[in-house]
Design a protein around this nucleic acid. Structure first.
Lengths: 154, 154
DNA sequence: TTAGTAGTGATAATCATTATCAATAAGGAG
DNA sequence: CTCCTTATTGATAATGATTATCACTACTAA
């Protein structure tokens, strides 16, 4: 059974309403696209995917929606160095668990890894505590990325 | 005594020549700016700084040089979510030691921290080894950033 | 039904970055 | 030191991702 935001009746809809936003067809289809893929899509790629089932949606709406989703915390925005923002569902989709990224500096391929995540997150949370106190900084998210060369590009 | 790339006679010059590049006044003044600051400057900010001592240098040259420096590995390029790339010297300047970043999601202020770096780097290098083997991925760099709210923005 | 307002599509505007190209200057050979 | 080759540069046009605008549509609550 697929999990994600396909059925707008679940958590996503509620989250939208909670923030005073409406759940619309456009937003739903964007969430669908994001929950169906395991890739890190750019706004334009999302637009093209959405087009297949909802061809009246415009690119501007994709930008607006995706930015909204980032604000709400349902979506994460990344920069992998290819001059465009890339988006992925925070969690909850069938494809995604908490992970970090390996980015190939040559072909720009991005690999999600979950190995060592436990230890990483454990250390991070310790670090977060220390930093929060020292800098009085309230930490919400972290990003860990490794840059290098993938097997094909070495 | 200042250390950095101010005197083009040192390592930077050599590194340039080694890659077949020339050390020019423009490049030198850009390195000077980067080695003198503790901030994370954008290309335009670098341009304005360079202007003070070398007003004939253009913005395009800053972009070109800074990109070159990133290729050579003398400079790191970051995205802190404010829609422009930011640059800082890898190491070797008086101001910089290996550090990670705290980024305020509200005011976009960036704090460098060196606390816990030892443990972080230690874990990272362990993780790197594992990932390298599993994905046959040759890791060159890592980025760790925490996002949240700084003291003033909470 | 209706008023009020959030959301949308189309498209123009913005702005960081890149490409172009003629002019200039670095560095080696003589 | 001078000349030659070619990397580098400045000015500026072009590109391309993202954002703003605006008239129109569609919810929602009363």
């Amino acid at each position: 059974m697929r999990r994600g935001c396909e059925e707008a009746s679940d958590g996503c809809h509620g989250k939208f309403r909670g923030f005073g936003y409406r759940m619309t067809l456009a937003r739903q289809s964007i969430l669908d696209v994001l929950s169906r893929t395991s890739k890190h899509l750019s706004a334009e790629e999302i637009y093209h995917e959405v087009y297949k089932t909802h061809p009246t949606s415009g690119l501007a709406t994709v930008y607006r929606t995706v930015e909204l989703l980032v604000q709400i915390g349902l979506v994460n925005k990344f920069d992998f160095g290819d001059n465009r923002a890339r988006y992925e569902l925070e969690i909850g989709s069938e494809h995604k668990a908490h992970h970090h990224h390996l980015v190939c500096m040559n072909c720009r391929r991005v690999i999600d890894y979950t190995d060592f995540i436990e230890e990483e997150v454990e250390l991070l949370s310790k670090t977060e505590k220390g930093l929060s106190k020292k800098y009085n900084f309230q930490i919400k998210k972290h990003i860990i990325q490794f840059y290098g060369l993938c097997d094909k590009c070495q």
